[in-house]
């Protein structure tokens, strides 16, 4: 069954939003995400461009300034809430894992 839009965030969506906790130029996110994840996650330029448009449409981020082609964004309250919900969901998954396998097995 297709996933409802932003019902759950993909890893790329999660990190793009995370980058926007503080004001950030859209293009800089392309470098920030790999840096933040130790290269584990990268976001393609086309994917980022479309994600930023969709986040704007959904009111999860807002544009803060435009300098030439550099557009900066920041999370809105809705975006902060959505990110927090996603964190709780991921954290709940981690909690479930720990409960099933126990702390010892993780070592």
């Amino acid at each position: 069954m297709p996933r409802l839009k932003f019902q759950t965030l993909t890893e790329q969506m999660f990190y793009v939003l995370l980058c926007l906790k503080t004001e950030c130029c859209g293009m800089d996110i392309l470098d920030r995400v790999p840096a933040m994840t130790g290269g584990r996650v990268s976001v393609g330029s086309g994917t980022l461009y479309n994600l930023l448009e969709q986040f704007l449409d959904a009111g999860m981020i807002r544009e803060t300034k435009v300098e030439g082609r550099r557009r900066s964004y920041i999370l809105t309250e809705a975006g902060v809430n959505r990110l927090a919900e996603e964190y709780r969901r991921i954290a709940a998954q981690g909690e479930d894992y720990r409960r099933i396998f126990g702390e010892e097995e993780q070592k």
Binding site: S42, V43, G44, T47
Partner: peptide, 9 residues
Amino acid sequence: VPIETDPVL
């Protein structure tokens, strides 16, 4: 890194 990294998008 490919331009498109999210197949749904």
